[in-house]
Every structure is written in C-alpha cells, then in structure tokens.
C-alpha cells in the first residue's frame, strides 16, 4: 500500500506497545508526520525496507515484536541505518527522532 501524504511510514507486525509509544514521541517532538500501518510480514528488515521505499519522505521504520529497524530510501535492505533488538525507552525515542532527522537532514542523535 502506498500513500501520497508526506509521512514517515512505520510498518509493524505485533509491535511492542512501549517501543511504539516512544518511537512515536521521538518523531512527534521533531515535528514530522507519520503513519503506523500493521503488516503481515514478520521480518523487521523487510518491513523497514518497504516502509522507507514507499514513504514520500524516504524514511521508514519496521517493528516486529521487539525488533526495530530504521531505513532510508535506496539503502541496501541488509544495511539499514540503525537496528536494535529489545531497545530501551531512550533508544526508541532517539530512533524516532532520527527517522525525522533523516528527513530534515540534521545530524542523528547518537
């Protein structure tokens, strides 16, 4: 499914609630729009890759359970910008902010 709104796409499969909340907060604080769309794929790499390439802004996040991947358009599927397994709240907040900073062309929060 593609959308024409300028949003960061977050493709999810049975995502962890806390993770998704913090990622949302991270994007929101940076002032960029986003959409969360449930998918049937399980692999977070696939989810992120698809999300980034379908996002008008070229920035996508894949969440599968407690696996999180940040991707940008045209990057190799297996070499995402960031990937975490069971990240803590702060890491999720930063990942959300970074998906927005990728759009704003600002340095990532590391």
């Amino acid at each position: 499914m593609t959308t024409n709104k300028p949003t960061i796409l977050v493709y999810v499969y049975e995502p962890d609630r806390a993770i998704i909340n913090e990622i949302q907060a991270g994007i929101e604080e940076e002032g960029v729009l986003f959409e969360i769309i449930p998918k049937t794929e399980i692999n977070a790499f696939d989810l992120a890759f698809e999300a980034a390439n379908e996002s008008v802004l070229g920035s996508g996040i894949g969440i599968s359970g407690k696996e999180v991947v940040l991707q940008m358009r045209n990057l190799n599927r297996d070499k995402p910008v960031f990937r975490y397994h069971e990240p803590d709240d702060q890491t999720c907040r930063k990942l959300g902010a970074n998906s927005a900073r990728a759009v704003k062309k600002m340095p990532f929060k590391i």
């Binding site: 070499k79 910008v81 990728a102 340095p107 990532f108």
Partner: peptide, 10 residues
Amino acid sequence: EAIDPRLFGS
C-alpha cells in the same frame, strides 16, 4: 556506497 550514518547531516 551509502556512508556511515553517523556522518549524516554533519
């Protein structure tokens, strides 16, 4: 090739 993301925006 894509460069190190830590350099992005810097």
